[in-house]
Design a protein around this nucleic acid. Structure first.
Lengths: 157, 157
DNA sequence: TTCAAAATCACCCGAAAGTATGACCAAAAT
DNA sequence: ATTTTGGTCATACTTTCGGGTGATTTTGAA
């Protein structure tokens, strides 16, 4: 830590050194007058205190402020009602026909085959055929599984 | 910055003071021997350097790093199971029993009654009873409708 | 302890779902 | 022109689902 400080800021070192030399000279001038009064300890203590504070000041002033970065992940829930974008890749991969997708969507709404056939104006048997093909393509066995998979793959909202 | 440092860490101040006093005593003992050699300036310089370094060390060691909080928005998709909070109001309103809720969840996973009964180690008839009661409470006619409603009410993920 | 709700299971029956197969037709691709 | 594909429909059959009813046991709270 300290070494990094001294290797990086050359200007700082020169500044500190110059200040130290200046103080040194001042001391040398005052030395004899103060020393005579037998106040050696006080003098040494004052110097120690001063340079301690100088060191603290130097460190605080001239080091880059320590920054501890805390990354807080804020979950943003995606509202399915407003902006639903179907997973086109999966949709393409499954290779469902238009009609099959229609049937799948109505299934997911909880309609029975009978109701779906009425909605699409076709016979019950047709819906059965579609759903059967649907299950084959999605590799599932039941309509509930088809719904689960479709929701998981984001094919339907 | 400096005042905060001194007001907060009393232990640090005592530590520094003790160290200073100790050094002071050492100097006082050595004082006369070194002073005699007319090396005052060197002695003063050494003390200045030492306490400067001490101050720097203190400042670097004991300052608290500034905390910078960065909030990163993380998209969470609806089928993320980890952050799912069930709608407790609706759950309470429907007044489903524990078992019925279990059955509902397994239904939504696409399991048949047979598979659910195997999963819960009960008979098929028990599952039928549960599902029947479930449909009554949810006021639906089919399992697919129950699933659709449960998802819409955020009872299950 | 008592009582109600919950959980368990059984049987029957009809409805719905799903499988398998085949057929027809039209549009699109080859 | 032929093949492929998607959509339609049908029959026959099996499985699953769901309703209705009734019964026993467990359990939790008053």
């Amino acid at each position: 830590m300290t070494s990094r400080l001294f290797t990086k800021n050359k200007r700082v070192i020169l500044y500190g050194a110059a200040l130290a030399v200046l103080l040194f000279l001042l001391k040398w001038l005052e030395f004899h007058f103060i020393i005579i009064n037998n106040a050696y300890e006080v003098y040494i203590g004052a110097i120690a205190l001063f340079f301690t504070l100088l060191g603290i000041w130097l460190a605080l002033k001239l080091t880059k402020p320590k920054v501890q970065t805390i990354v807080v992940e804020k979950p943003v829930y995606i509202n399915d009602v407003s902006g639903f974008s179907p997973n086109l890749r999966e949709l393409e991969r499954l290779n469902l026909s238009r009609r099959e997708l229609e049937v799948l969507e109505l299934m997911a709404e909880g309609l029975s085959n009978q109701e779906i056939s009425a909605r699409l104006f076709v016979s019950l048997n047709t819906i059965k055929t579609h759903s059967s093909n649907l299950f084959d393509k999605m590799e599932v066995k039941r309509r509930t599984q088809a719904i689960e998979m479709a929701k998981r793959l984001c094919i339907i909202p």
